[in-house]
C-alpha cells in the first residue's frame, strides 16, 4: 500500500506499523524524533501499536538547531 511520508509517496507492506516504517527509514532509538499520522501526534511508545492504512499522511520531524 502507499502512504505519504513527509509529502512523498512511499510503498509499505499492508501490515506496516509506524515503528516499522521509522525503522526502515533509519531512525535510531535515541534520536529526538516525533511522528504524526494526519494531525494525531503518536507517542513513541505507541508507534508499535499504530498500524498504518493506505493513504495515511505521515509527518516525521526531528529536533534541530534554531533560535
Amino acid at each position: 500500500m502507499i502512504v505519504l511520508v513527509n509529502g512523498k509517496n512511499t510503498d509499505v507492506p499492508s501490515n506496516c506499523t509506524l515503528e516499522k516504517l521509522c525503522e526502515t527509514i533509519g531512525i535510531k532509538a535515541n534520536e529526538p524524533v516525533a511522528a504524526a499520522v494526519g494531525t494525531d501526534v503518536i507517542d513513541r511508545n505507541m508507534w508499535n501499536a499504530t498500524l498504518l492504512k493506505d493513504g495515511d499522511n505521515i509527518t516525521i520531524i526531528r529536533a534541530t538547531c534554531g533560535g
Binding site: G7, I25, P32, R62, A63, T64
Partner: peptide, 19 residues
C-alpha cells in the same frame, strides 16, 4: 537552550543528533 523542528529527510536520516 532553544531548539527547532525540521522535517526528517526520509532518504538521509543520518545527520548529527543536536542533543
Amino acid at each position: 537552550v532553544t531548539t527547532a523542528l525540521k522535517r526528517l529527510n526520509t532518504e538521509d536520516s543520518g545527520s548529527e543528533n543536536i542533543l
